[in-house]
Amino acid sequence: MRKPSLRAYRIASLFLLACLLFNYPVLALFNVGATAGGVPVLYVYLFAAWGVVIALAAVVIEGGS
């Protein structure tokens, strides 16, 4: 078995980060009635976090290959 590469560790970390971001209790922090720029914060948070994860995935998984 080859030694897992640095990329593999990064991908695994990103996966764990994503699991954390889209789960209780982080979600609960944003599950409030407030709005940001007129948009509910939960809605803003979910799409923002999602976007960040996708961007990181693009960098970590495809970047530098």
Binding site: A8, I11, F15, A18, C19, V53, I54, A57, I61
Partner: peptide
């Protein structure tokens, strides 16, 4: 699916 795709490489 986003999470799965992160692990897709594995």
């Amino acid at each position: 699916p986003t999470l799965t795709m992160l692990l897709g490489w594995f």
